[in-house]
Amino acid sequence: MTHILLIQSSSNLASSVSRDLSETYVNDYKATHPDTTVTERDLVSSPIPHLGVDLLGGFFGKPEALTEAQKAALALSNTLVDEMMAASLIVIGVPMYNFSIPSALKAWIDHVVRAGRTFHYTAEGPSGLVTGKKAVLFLAAGGVYSNGPYKPYDFQETYLRAILGFIGITDVTVIRAEGLALGEESAAKAKADAHARTAALAV
Rank of each mutant, 00 (worst) to 15 (best):
F119R: 10
D110L: 04
A188C: 04
A181L: 14
A72N: 09
A72T: 14
V130W: 06
D193K: 04
A14R: 14
V112E: 00
P34H: 08
G58T: 13
V94L: 02
K189N: 09
A65L: 15
P102H: 04
I92H: 01
G93D: 01
A187G: 15
Y97L: 04
T24Q: 14
K151S: 13
I163C: 11
T37H: 10
L55W: 00
T118G: 08
V174I: 15
G116Q: 12
F119I: 12
T2K: 08
T32F: 08
L201I: 02
A87N: 01
T39Y: 05
A187Q: 10
Y29T: 13
H120P: 03
V81Y: 01
S77E: 01
R19G: 07
A202F: 05
R176W: 06
A140Y: 01
V130K: 04
H111D: 10
S186K: 11
Y29V: 11
V38P: 09
F119M: 11
M1R: 09
V144N: 10
K30I: 14
A75C: 09
S127I: 14
Y97D: 02
K134L: 08
A123H: 08
A188F: 04
G132K: 04
I163F: 13
S46W: 05
A69V: 03
T79H: 07
L76W: 03
L182S: 06
A72P: 01
Y150G: 03
H3T: 15
N78S: 14
V91H: 00
P149T: 05
V136D: 04
G57W: 08
E185D: 15
D54S: 15
K191S: 04
V144P: 08
V203T: 14
Y25F: 15
A140Q: 03
M1C: 06
F60I: 09
E157M: 10
G57Y: 02
G142K: 06
T36P: 05
P102E: 09
I163G: 08
I92E: 01
I109F: 13
A14C: 07
L76D: 02
P149H: 04
P63W: 02
E184F: 06
V81G: 03
A107N: 13
L164S: 06
A190W: 07
D193R: 07
S9A: 14
P152Q: 05
Y145T: 01
S11M: 11
I163T: 14
G58M: 06
G61D: 10
P102V: 00
K62A: 14
E184P: 12
T131S: 08
A181M: 13
K189I: 03
G57N: 03
A135Y: 12
Y150K: 13
H50Q: 14
